[in-house]
């Protein structure tokens, strides 16, 4: 009797929940449709096939104004990945160095790394990006008086050019900002990962006669990695999401290009959902990749 009542109650609650969600969505959709219609705003993704009509100043894939919007957005996505990829690599390196530095037996080094972490993670990323950009554009010399490092590299307001490849100050500002900010978090992840491996593990390995380096590589590192990997994956995801702040320093990433498209076409609904869809897909892809890697690393 009680069972049956509980069953019906669960059924009723769920029906109610579904009805409420459907009603809310329908209400929003109805309002939107009505607003779009009464104000004469066209909708649909057909604009993606029209010529974009604007140029992208700094693009990994070649893009010109005569090509359609979808290619502009693709160029934006490529730019997002172009800055996120190196940023992830550099964050891992700097973050690991800082995290291990905090665990160092040298008190000065540990303190210095700790100070870095506390300074950089308590200042908003946007502010750090703006400050980097200001340093790279305002304080560097103009192009004609660029700082030269041999014949290979020049550094000026127009950016860094290395062996003919050139990086704009916008790109560099986003890269430096993302790396410095994320590395502070990465350092904490690494520290927590290594800190969580019990000392008894090291002692046991030493008792078995393993050498110091082998203990670190074969006993401590694999255990620490299992703790670090999921947290690091989250950090990489949030780094990629944070790269959307590039819009503030003029780097043409996905959000910046979509924003321009939105302003040119007025298709707000479509452009915002495109941004969200792409980032969701990136999140999903990362989650799947991490699961595969974790399975590979699985401890027997």
């Amino acid at each position: 009797m009680v069972e049956r009542r509980r069953y019906w109650r669960a059924f009723a609650y769920q029906a109610l929940a579904i009805a409420a969600i459907v009603a809310a969505l329908a209400y929003l959709a109805h309002n939107t449709a009505q607003n779009l219609q009464s104000r004469g705003i066209p909708s649909g993704f057909d604009f993606l096939l029209q010529a974009a009509g604007f140029d992208i100043g700094d693009s990994l894939v070649s893009f010109s104004a005569g090509e359609p919007y979808w290619q502009a957005l693709l160029a934006g996505l490529a730019n997002t990945l172009r800055v996120a990829g190196p940023a992830i690599v550099l964050t891992t390196l700097l973050g690991t160095a800082l995290g291990l530095g905090r665990l160092s037996s040298n008190a000065l080094l540990a303190g210095l790394c700790g100070a870095y972490v506390e300074v950089f993670r308590n200042i908003p990323l946007l502010l750090q990006l703006l400050a980097w950009y200001f340093v790279l554009t305002d304080l560097l010399p103009p192009f004609d008086e660029a700082w030269r490092l041999g014949g290979a590299a020049t550094l000026s307001k127009s950016g860094l050019s290395l062996f003919g490849a050139s990086l704009t100050p916008e790109f560099l500002a986003v890269l430096f900002g993302l790396v410095c900010y994320s590395a502070a978090y990465m350092a904490e992840i690494v520290r927590a990962g290594f800190g969580a491996v019990p000392r008894s593990q090291t002692e046991a390995a030493a008792a078995l006669g393993m050498a110091g380096r082998d203990i670190q590589l074969q006993v401590v590192l694999p255990q620490a990695l299992r703790l670090i990997m999921p947290a690091a994956a989250n950090q990489f995801l949030s780094l990629t999401k944070n790269s959307s702040l590039a819009i503030a320093v003029g780097y043409p990433d996905l959000v910046s290009v979509a924003n321009t498209a939105l302003n040119q076409t007025g298709r707000a609904l479509e452009c915002v959902s495109l941004i969200m869809g792409v980032y969701l897909a990136l999140s999903l892809a990362t989650a799947i990749a991490m699961r595969v890697i974790e399975r590979r690393l699985a401890w027997p």
Partner: peptide
């Protein structure tokens, strides 16, 4: 929401909310 950047939600709030609200 955790999969998308804050900027996109701010765009949603800024550009789309006026469309979602009843007239």
């Amino acid at each position: 929401v955790r999969g998308v950047p804050l900027v996109s939600l701010l765009f949603l709030a800024s550009f789309l909310l006026p469309l979602f609200l009843p007239q």
